[in-house]
Structure formats: C-alpha cells, structure tokens
Computed example of a mutant assay.
Amino acid sequence: MSSPQSPRSSYSQRTNGNDSDEDCYVPRTPRRTPMACTFCRGRKLKCDGRSVCANCNKRGIPCTYVPVSGQR
C-alpha cells in the first residue's frame, strides 16, 4: 500500500532533496526605474525608463525626461 505524499516531501523531491534551498529563498524585488518621463509622472503611470517609453510610444507623444528638484 502506498501512502499519499505530503507537500513537503514532494517539494524536497523536486529540488533533489536539498532542504537548504528552502531556507535561503530571497524574494525577487523588481528593479526601480531611476526616473519617470514627464507624461508618466503626470499621469502616475509605470514608466519603463527607455529613451521612448512604452506609454509615450503607444500614444505617439514625445517622451521627455526632466529631473525633479530635490527640495523638501
């Protein structure tokens, strides 16, 4: 008679029995774009940071990057 495998045992089989990988898991954080273009900043959209971003390219508008002053 075979017993059903627990989720942990099936996980360890998929990772070649290496339980140390499970302890060292670090979630991947997305890279942050250094600066958003003027259009994306104004509309609060996610800018991809390319020379002509996808949002501006899709709308056919000029994509300009203007640094924000650091006054607080």
Rank of each mutant, 00 (worst) to 15 (best):
R59D: 11
F39T: 04
N16Q: 13
F39R: 13
R28A: 08
T29K: 08
C47G: 01
P27C: 03
K46D: 03
K44P: 03
S12W: 11
R43M: 12
R28T: 02
C40F: 15
R8T: 08
P34W: 01
S69K: 05
R41K: 07
S20L: 10
I61Q: 05
P27W: 03
I61W: 13
V26P: 00
G60S: 04
P62G: 05
R8D: 06
M35S: 05
C53K: 09
R50Y: 04
G49Q: 02
R43F: 03
A54Q: 06
K46Q: 05
N18D: 14
P7E: 00
Y11S: 14
R31F: 08
V66W: 01
V66A: 04
Y11F: 15
V68G: 04
N57K: 06
T15D: 04
E22S: 08
S10Y: 06
P34E: 10
N16P: 06
E22R: 15
S20Y: 15
C40G: 13
M1A: 12
K46P: 01
V52H: 14
V52R: 15
Q71M: 09
R28N: 13
C40W: 02
N55K: 12
T38G: 06
S51I: 12
T33K: 09
K46H: 07
M35L: 10
G70V: 00
K46A: 09
P7N: 00
V68M: 12
R41L: 11
R59N: 11
D19G: 03
S20H: 15
S3G: 04
N55G: 10
Y11G: 07
G49M: 01
Y25N: 08
V66L: 13
R50M: 09
S20C: 10
N57A: 08
L45R: 01
Y65E: 04
R50N: 09
S3E: 00
Y25V: 12
V68D: 15
P30Q: 01
C53F: 11
E22L: 15
S9M: 02
C53W: 07
D21N: 12
Q5K: 15
C47P: 07
S51W: 08
N57F: 03
A54I: 07
C56V: 14
N18K: 05
M35H: 02
C53P: 11
Y65G: 10
S2A: 08
C24R: 15
Y25T: 06
T29S: 02
A54G: 10
V66C: 09
F39S: 03
S20N: 07
S12Y: 11
G17K: 11
Y65F: 15
Q5I: 13
Y25D: 01
Y11Q: 10
R50D: 09
V52S: 12
Y11K: 11
V52Q: 13
M35P: 00
S20R: 15
K44F: 09
Q71G: 04
P67M: 14
N16D: 10
V68T: 13
C24I: 12
V66R: 07
R14G: 02
V68L: 12
C47L: 09
N55W: 09
V26F: 03
C47D: 00
V52M: 14
P67W: 13
C56Q: 14
S10T: 07
M1H: 09
V26M: 05
R32K: 13
P30W: 09
R8Q: 06
M1T: 12
P62F: 11
P30K: 07
Q5N: 14
T38C: 11
K58T: 03
R41T: 06
G49F: 02
S51C: 08
